[in-house]
Design a protein around this nucleic acid. Structure first.
Lengths: 160, 160
DNA sequence: TTGACTGCAAAAACTTTGCAACGTC
DNA sequence: GACGTTGCAAAGTTTTTGCAGTCAA
């Protein structure tokens, strides 16, 4: 686990920055700059807005680093999550889905009928967040949770 | 798995009705009236608004029916969920939490700091549900999901 | 050199499934 | 008697952990 992939992936412009900053942050906490940490960040950076399971990340990474293991994926994601660099959502059953936490907060709507995942912008639930805070003092953590329900096409299907 | 508990639990007034109706519904679908099904419903009826894990239900039931097994709990809950008699929430990590779906729809707010679960009434979310439906066509299923965030006391603690 | 980190293997936590015996209709 | 259900045991899925060897600082 020492070599780098032969060349940076295309569309990689901001990867070096983010990865450099992240590694710097890890160093500040007494952690070390290691290949797994760079590689997991790179894998998430390939499609910064997308959700990825640990298994998907592992499969992608193992194409270049066959020795990379599950446990390292999980340990690395946990570390990055502690530093608020990544986050994960539970879309329902099945594995957690991980993403870079840099992006705007979003809401994930999962259809219990077809399994599709819709993404909603944070402003949809701004009113809700304020209302919950006012009534209960609870600070809703946007982008950290999923909502289940029925998507439009499944609703239409059910209604014949 | 044939005998009944020696006497009905106290405060059981509506249990017979609900259980009877549920069994009737099961029969209409070609299912059978069995002790496990009655017993799981009874366990949930002990505290109708509360969330219970499969493990908690099992422990409670095994006090009266030592042979009762995990798999029967899960299979029974799945059946009752299919009939819309019970529902479950994922509060984050850990096991699913089950409840009778008869009650008013609610929202579960789990504090990522202390693990506490707050319950919020559905009307808090009415505006959100309408807004999501208008913008995306997605029908949010209230009471089926949990929201993470930080509760008031943990927020105060963090702020010193 | 020191100790943080990783790979490997095993296990933990939660849930599902196969099958033969059993109970309901 | 037919067949839906259950108990039991085994296995599936996702994630965590222990430990000895490896690598960054």
């Amino acid at each position: 686990m020492t070599s780098r992939p032969s060349k940076p992936a295309p569309g990689d412009q901001d990867s070096p920055d983010l990865i450099h900053d992240a590694i710097e942050l890890i160093r500040q906490q007494g952690g070390r700059s290691t290949t797994p940490r760079r590689v997991v960040l790179e894998a998430l950076l390939l499609s910064p807005g997308e959700l990825r399971t640990a298994e998907q990340l592992l499969a992608h990474i193992q194409a270049s680093y066959p020795d990379f293991t599950e446990s390292t994926v999980y340990r690395t994601l946990a570390l990055l999550e502690d530093l608020d660099l990544v986050d994960h959502v539970h879309l329902g059953h099945g594995p957690s889905h991980w993403y870079l936490s840099g992006a705007l907060p979003r809401w994930y709507l999962t259809c219990t009928s077809c399994g599709d995942v819709l993404v909603a912008e944070a402003d949809i639930f701004a009113g809700l967040v304020a209302e919950v805070a006012k009534r209960t003092g609870f600070t809703v953590d946007a982008g950290h949770f999923a909502v289940t329900g029925t998507c439009l096409s499944c609703s239409n299907q059910k209604a014949h």
